[in-house]
Amino acid sequence: MLSITDLTKAYGTTTALAGVSLSLSPGEMVGFVGANGAGKSTTMRIAMGLLAADSGSVRWNDGPLTAAGRARFGYMPEERGLYPKMRIVEQVAYFGQLRGMPAAAAAAAAERLIKQMDVLAGPRDNVQALSLGNQQRVQLAAALVHDPEVLILDEPFSGLDPVGVDTMADVLNRRRADGTGVLFSSHQLELVERLCDRVVIIRNGRIVADGTLESLRSHGARRELEVRVDADPSWTAALDGVREVSRDGTLAVLAVDAPDADQQVLAAAIKAGRVEHFGWRTPSLSELYREAMSVDAA
């Protein structure tokens, strides 16, 4: 659906993007993560035509992405782009009309979305009367009002309480189920892990990881075993090529180097005492992210 290839962008002597490539398929939700200034917003703004790349391409449905194609996108910038003195429904409907919707259809869609997003407001309230979390919900409604085929969302969960996060996640999941491609950036890695089909990690303007959580875990540099043995903790001391990373009572987390070291660990654990748990440890996205950030740049 959306293909971004070899984007470069520099501001004077500062390189913002250095060959960024990523893709988005219909019905796929992709989390775009990285530190502040890594290049996430720049990539999204180029995709939306708000910035020009120095080189590279953005294509949609196997053709060049034109203004007409971008009209089928829903975009939510990190900075709120709402008119504070407009009434809420009128504002969302206005964004729908800017995307070519008839006035009546835009108004009906705006009413429906405001209700679906659980925006806490009166019928005559304007945006400036809302809390920051409710403004965030309105901003997403404005991105959704014209029923886009692609959603590009920059920090959509910022400022939301847990109920607001769940509401927005439910809306995005429904859109994904209907075939909408969703690309969003977030520093809330637990949300990315919970919601996304694929994760793209960017560092200093370069993509350093791209894949499903399963594939990122399988290519991780560190493999760790969790072993709970009812035995003296010293049983791990004699293991070759195995390092104890942490311990919580009888539960040890062991880093292993050799491919078949798990069998050595299991044999030693059985010999030491009663084995209550044995298995590979599943790293969280936060751990995978830190690992990607710590690898020396090429």
Results as ranks from 00 to 15, higher is better:
residue 93 A to C: 00
residue 112 R to C: 02
residue 101 M to A: 11
residue 172 L to K: 03
residue 158 S to W: 08
residue 122 G to Q: 08
residue 145 V to S: 10
residue 75 Y to E: 08
residue 81 G to I: 06
residue 159 G to D: 14
residue 39 G to W: 02
residue 135 Q to F: 10
residue 173 N to K: 09
residue 67 A to W: 03
residue 49 G to I: 14
residue 52 A to G: 15
residue 104 A to T: 06
residue 122 G to F: 06
residue 143 A to N: 02
residue 166 D to W: 03
residue 43 T to I: 14
residue 86 M to F: 14
residue 132 L to V: 11
residue 92 V to D: 00
residue 167 T to P: 01
residue 158 S to Y: 04
residue 174 R to H: 15
residue 64 P to A: 12
residue 138 V to Q: 07
residue 121 A to P: 03
residue 114 I to L: 07
residue 173 N to L: 15
residue 112 R to D: 11
residue 106 A to G: 06
residue 168 M to F: 13
residue 142 A to S: 13
residue 83 Y to L: 12
residue 94 Y to S: 02
residue 102 P to H: 13
residue 119 V to E: 05
residue 46 I to S: 04
residue 90 E to R: 04
residue 54 D to S: 12
residue 42 T to N: 11
residue 47 A to K: 11
residue 149 E to C: 07
residue 71 A to E: 14
residue 110 A to P: 03
residue 172 L to Y: 14
residue 63 G to R: 14
residue 137 R to G: 10
residue 94 Y to V: 04
residue 58 V to F: 07
residue 47 A to T: 15
residue 53 A to V: 03
residue 98 L to N: 01
residue 153 L to R: 08
residue 71 A to H: 12
residue 175 R to A: 15
residue 38 A to T: 04
residue 57 S to T: 07
residue 59 R to V: 03
residue 122 G to M: 13
residue 166 D to I: 02
residue 95 F to N: 02
residue 97 Q to D: 03
residue 58 V to G: 04
residue 79 E to R: 12
residue 52 A to Y: 13
residue 114 I to W: 05
residue 173 N to S: 09
residue 80 R to P: 00
residue 166 D to L: 08
residue 165 V to F: 09
residue 148 P to S: 15
